[in-house]
Design a protein around this nucleic acid. Sequence first.
DNA 1: TACGAACTGGACCATGCAGTCCAACCACGA
DNA 2: TCGTGGTTGGACTGCATGGTCCAGTTCGTA
Lengths: 200, 200
Amino acid sequence: MAELTERGRRTRQRIVEETGRQILAAGIGGTTLDDVRAATLTSKSQLFHYFPGGKDELVRAVAEWEGAQLMAAQEPWVHDLSTRESWEAWRQALVDYYIGQGRWACPIGSLASEAAARNPELAAVVAQAFRDWGALLAAGVRRMQDAGRLGGHVDPDRVAASIMSAIQGGLVLSQPLHDPWPLEAALEQALHALDTPAPR
Amino acid sequence: MAELTERGRRTRQRIVEETGRQILAAGIGGTTLDDVRAATLTSKSQLFHYFPGGKDELVRAVAEWEGAQLMAAQEPWVHDLSTRESWEAWRQALVDYYIGQGRWACPIGSLASEAAARNPELAAVVAQAFRDWGALLAAGVRRMQDAGRLGGHVDPDRVAASIMSAIQGGLVLSQPLHDPWPLEAALEQALHALDTPAPR
DNA sequence: TACGAACTGGACCATGCAGTCCAACCACGA
DNA sequence: TCGTGGTTGGACTGCATGGTCCAGTTCGTA
C-alpha cells in the first residue's frame, strides 16, 4: 500500500466506519460493496485502492477498528476493576455502548459466529480479541483478590469467561427481542461471582 | 403443498437434515442450494418442489426441526428441574448435545444473530423459541422454589434468561477456541443462582 | 508552474447463486 | 391397461455482487 495523505486517511476511515455499521446491521454476508460505496459516496476503485485485498481485507480492518472502539468504551474502568464500584461503572459503560448506541450486537461476537468457519484468518483475529479482553477482566478479578475483597478460591480466568459469555449470550437474547433485559439479567448474575468476600 | 407419499417425506427430511448441517457449519449465507442439492443427491426441482417458498422456507423448516431436536435432547430433565441433581443431569445432556456431536454452535442461537435483521419472519420464530425455552427453565426454577430448595427472592425469568445467555455466550467463546471450557465455566456460574436455599 | 504521486469516477467483466421450466419417471388405484 | 398425481433430473435464466481497468482529477512540493 502506498503512502496515505490526510485526505486519504479520512476517506479510508469513512469506509471502515460505514462498513462497520452495515456489518453490525446485516452481517458480513449481508453487506455488499455497492452498499458501502453508495453510503460513503465513494467508488469501487476507492474501495480497492484502500483495501487491495478486497472485501476480506476490509472486513478485517473493520474488525480491528471495532475491537479498538469496544475496548476504548470500557476505559478507564477496565484497567482498574479493583473494587465492586469500578466493576459497576465498567458494566454501565459497556451496556451504554451496546444499547445506548442501538448496536444490539457485539462487533466482535457477531463476527465470531459468522467468520468461524468461512474465514480462518479472521477467526484467529476474533479469538485473539477474546483472549485479550478476557485477560483484562481476569486481571481485574485478581486485583479484587489482592485487595482482599474477593476469596482466593475463585478462578479469575473462569470468572472472566463467564462474564464475557454473559455479555455475548445476553446480546444474542436481547437482539431479537430488542429489549436489553436479558443482557442485564445475565450480566448481573455473572457479576455475582465477585460477591464472595475473602474469609478473614 | 400437495400430499406427500412416504418416499417424498423421506426425501424432504433428508434435505432438511443436510441443510441443517450445512447451516451450522457455514451459516445461512454460506449455504448454497447447490451444495444441498449435491449432498443430498437431489435436484433443484426437488428443493423447490418440497419448499415452494425457496431458500427462506427451507431455512425456516430447518429452524423448526433443529429446535425440536434441541428440545428433545433435554428430555426428560427439562420437564423436571425440581432438584439440583435434575439440573445437573439436564446440563450434562445439553453440553453433550452441543459438544459431543461436534456442533460447537446452537442451531437457534446461530440463526438468531444472522437472521435478526435480514429475515424478520425468521427472527420471530427464533424469538418465540427463546421464549418457550425460557418458560421451561423458569418453570423449573419455580419448582425449586416450591419445593423449598431455593429462596423466593430470585426472579425465575431472570435466572432462566441468564442461564440461556450463559449457554449462548459460552458457545460464542468456545467456537473459535474449539474448546468447551468457556461454555462450562459460564454455565456453572449461571447455575450458582440455584444455590441460594430458602431461608427457614 | 511543473511534475509525479496519491486520489477518484464509473464503465466493464466474470461468476456464483436463487429460482424457473419442462420432460420423464414412478406408484397406485380404477 | 390406463391415467392421474406425486416425484425426479437437469438445462436454462436473470441478477446481484465481487473484482478489474483505465482515464481523469487533485494535491503536495520543488
